[in-house]
Design a protein around this nucleic acid. Structure first.
Length: 820
DNA sequence: TTGAAG
DNA sequence: TAATACACTTCAA
């Protein structure tokens, strides 16, 4: 008889093993021991929805159901009639519990024959995910495990415990050990290919001070952290040993899903070396799907920072490309090592000595900045994982839609709701072609203005969802005669229940209130406080989910798709912002502009009293949790004719620029920088003269070819495969002419060169322009890039194209005159 | 001049 | 495997 054990630990990964017949929770104790907890108590289940009139015969059928399968007979372990709701509609269902998760797919064809059968739900969810939906296993947060110790032979762990009870405590693990890694390959002939090009070194670094570079060519006076091995093959043996020794809780890389880990895997396979890194002693598992890949280690979450940044963080970043260098620069203020071009790496290897030492430094530096990124971002991924309720490995690869879906699925039980099925592809197709009206954008007053006040609605769409109870479960309810009625949407209105809170608005309300509490606490904290980064990560993760709910209603593959809900949200949004505009104009404020949830007003002076009163008045009339907030005061701003394009300068002389060429990556740096300088001259210095001078100088520089090539490069993404283009734009033409292999999704940096023909014919990829020593087309950059960008700004302040040219001409004449 | 594609 | 609105370019018909 084995006595009961109680163990506190922090989970980092969860899966299901059919061999064990158990859910496996992998984690770490506070004294750095590895733990595997086996839970055999959770049985999989699904629901069959039936006609309530056939209840009895349905139960009888299911009670007697028995399917013969190899050697055994399979039947439901338990059946139970339940009254549930499916997207708000009361239904009768039978919950069918099975012994083994695999029984679901064996039984389901026979379930169809149930008398009164209508549908089946919750059968399409993998067992471990279902477990996580119904059992709280917060990643990186303390669990108290009751159970008995069992044989640990099969695992690379200190404790293996079969549990009968798990309690969650809420305390976060403070010593999460993150290991970053990066590889370099020997690829003299272009893109690295794992079938030909060896790995020459691997670097690793952890957040608790461990550093190592493994390489198989010796050089003098190596860095302390270098470990020489005899051959490429030995790299893999040394790497496996190192991982086993340092026991990381999380392994991170940058693009490691698609590059580093598959490459390591494929090279090791060549030498028939197994990479048994999993806590269950299984090998690194690489699944390739076309150009995509997912690399998993059982028990140790592999987080590819690139995936998370691309899917979730990317839209909030300023950077135009998501390569490690740009992302690191923006998020942690660090760059990659300069001076080594990745195409030259093979030369550093061949030359050896000091060059090789430099390459080692470079390799280590990449691991270092990947690690720093992970230190900064892993709190967010962990928080997101805890809110969504799925493993770190999965959540770090999810997009917005999946995050919301799993978050909602986790919370259906307390509302007695079932998880609806995924839509059939036929329905998805129909949904894709449906469109609806979006937000309202007020036509701007062009010109230069002073004393600008900006107000915006705090979380407009989430607060509308909550305040008007917008949910597929409350749409067209039977209980309210009136309910919340939307403004007119193409001659009709929708009504939402006023009595019973919908399941999604209720969850959103809880999230928003939770975030408000966190923000209150953060206000009184210093950035250096221990919990600051955790709380701000939590706030960010909550915001991510809350802001995605509206989009999820309109998302064709959504399980809770509701186009009427999405239409209602934007309709109310339009009404509220238009009301504010109307009332502001009635109160004689000068409304300059408004977009979706914000309004900009120009005052005669910087006295904000009047406008504070105005906001208070608006807020008194707003329902529920809706609120108009003061966003900021800007001494000067420029609005151009077009919507969604303006620039504001705050008291600190910082510019906020929206939509203008300055912020667009598909414009050359020379055009963008010049436009920025012109805006600074006008908004901060208040001088048209200075602005004209700047333009004149830039034109001269272009004419004299003093502008470096990188400043005339234009960045455009290849959205399709090159061969799929019917219309050949300049970026496609440049990519086609290049010897480099460009694939869908690649960014093309091209330059328009001197010569004859169309723009496309004159466009070449920047590296080709460099290599072939071609010259950029000065006229193109002056007339098609620089001038249009600044002309828009000048025409806003009442200087026409011709007038601007006149001013420039005079200046240029004078300039030439001086020169002579 | 207009629509497609970016 | 979140949404729509909007401006403006180049290319090709």
């Amino acid at each position: 008889m084995v006595s009961e054990t109680i163990l506190e630990f922090y989970p980092f990964d969860v899966d299901y093993s059919s061999n064990e017949g158990a859910i496996r929770i992998f984690g770490v104790t506070s004294d750095d021991k590895r733990v595997v907890v086996l839970d055999k108590n959770f049985k999989n289940y699904f629901y069959v929805i039936i006609n309530p009139k056939k209840e009895e015969s349905a139960v009888e059928y299911l009670e007697n159901l028995e399917v013969a399968s190899e050697e055994t007979k399979i039947k439901p372990l338990d059946i139970k009639i339940v009254k549930k709701k499916l997207v708000g509609n009361p239904i009768t269902a039978i919950k069918i519990v099975v012994e083994n998760p695999s029984d679901v797919s064996i039984l389901k064809d026979y379930i169809k024959e149930t008398p009164g059968y209508i549908d089946r739900v919750e059968e399409d969810i993998p067992h471990y995910k279902k477990y996580l939906l119904r059992n709280k296993v917060p990643m990186g947060s303390k669990l108290i495990c009751h159970g008995k110790k069992v044989d640990a032979m099969k695992y690379n762990a200190d404790y293996v415990i079969e549990t009968n009870k798990l309690e969650s405590d809420g305390e976060n693990f403070e010593k999460t050990r993150i290991m970053a890694m990066d590889i370099e390959t020997y690829n003299p002939k272009g893109n690295p290919s794992s079938s030909k090009d060896p790995i020459i070194m691997i670097s690793m670094q952890t957040n608790d001070g461990f550093k190592k570079v493994i390489t198989w060519k010796q050089f003098e006076n190596p860095q302390k952290y270098v470990k020489f091995v005899d051959s490429e093959m030995d790299i893999f043996l040394e790497l496996s040993k190192t991982i086993e020794k340092i026991k990381p809780d999380i392994i991170v890389g940058y693009n490691s899903d698609v590059f580093d880990l598959p490459y390591i895997f494929e090279r090791a396979e060549k030498y028939k070396i197994k990479l048994a890194w999993g806590l269950d002693k299984t090998n690194l598992n690489v699944r390739r799907r076309g150009t995509n890949a997912v690399s998993k280690i059982n028990g140790i979450p592999h987080v590819d920072m690139f995936q998370f940044i691309r899917n979730i963080l990317g839209p909030t970043l300023k950077t135009e490309t998501l390569d490690l260098n740009s992302v690191a620069k923006e998020i942690i203020g660090e760059k990659k090592k300069e001076g080594i071009n990745w195409t030259d790496i093979h030369m550093y290897w061949d030359e050896g000595g000091e060059k090789l030492k430099k390459l080692v430094e470079y390799n280590m530096h990449d691991s270092k900045i990947t690690l720093k990124l992970a230190e900064k971002l892993s709190p967010i991924v962990l928080e997101l994982s805890r809110i969504v309720g799925q493993p770190l490995f999965n959540v770090s690869r999810m997009r917005y839609g999946q995050c919301v879906e799993w978050f909602l699925a986790k919370n259906t039980d307390e509302f007695n709701e079932l998880i609806p099925k995924k839509p059939y592809s036929k329905n998805v197709g129909e949904r894709f072609v449906r469109s609806y009206e979006g937000a309202y954008v007020h036509k701007p007053k062009p010109g230069l203005f002073e004393n600008i006040v900006v107000y915006d609605f705090r979380s407009l769409y989430p607060s509308i969802i909550v305040s008007h109870n917008i949910c597929p479960t409350t749409l067209f309810c039977d209980c309210c005669k009136k309910g919340y009625e939307t403004p007119k949407i193409k001659d009709k209105t929708y009504t939402f229940c006023e009595k019973e809170k919908g399941f999604i608005p209720k969850l959103l309300e809880d999230l928003i209130k939770r975030r408000m509490r966190i923000k209150e606490i953060l206000k009184d904290m210093k950035k250096s406080d221990a919990d600051y980064s955790i709380l701000s990560a939590r706030s960010y993760a909550i915001k991510t989910i809350a802001n995605s709910a509206y989009g999820f209603y309109a998302f064709p593959r959504s399980r809770w798709y509701c186009i009427e809900c999405a239409e209602s949200i934007t309709a109310w949004g339009r009404k509220y912002i238009k009301d504010v505009i109307e009332k502001a104009e009635k109160d004689k404020f000068n409304v300059l502009y408004s977009d979706t949830d914000s309004i900009m007003i120009s005052l005669e002076d910087s006295n904000l009293d009047k406008i504070e009163k105005f906001a208070k008045k608006i807020n008194k009339e707003l329902p529920g949790m809706m609120e108009l907030e003061f966003e900021g005061f800007y001494p000067r701003g420029i609005f151009v004719e077009a919507k969604k394009r303006y620039a504001l300068a705050n008291k600190k002389n910082e510019l906020t620029i929206k939509g203008l060429e300055v912020v667009r990556r598909d414009w050359s740096s020379i055009a963008r920088n010049t436009q920025r300088e012109v805006l600074e001259a006008l908004l901060i210095k208040g001088s048209t003269e200075k602005a004209v001078d700047i333009i004149r100088n830039r034109i001269e520089q272009l004419k004299n070819r003093e502008v470096p090539l990188k400043d005339v490069a234009i960045l455009t993404q290849l959205k399709r495969r090159i061969e799929d283009y019917s219309s050949i734009g300049p970026h496609v033409a440049a990519a086609k002419k290049s010897k480099q292999n460009f694939e869908r999704g690649h960014m093309i940096s091209y330059v328009v060169t001197e010569g004859v023909g169309s723009i496309s014919e004159k466009s070449y990829v920047i590296t080709d322009v460099e290599n072939k020593d071609m010259k950029y087309d000065s006229d193109y950059y002056i007339n098609n890039q620089l001038l249009p960008a600044v002309e828009r700004i000048f025409s806003a302040i009442g200087v026409s194209k011709d007038e601007l040219k006149g001013k420039l001409q005079k200046k240029l004449d004078g300039f030439f005159g001086d020169k002579k």
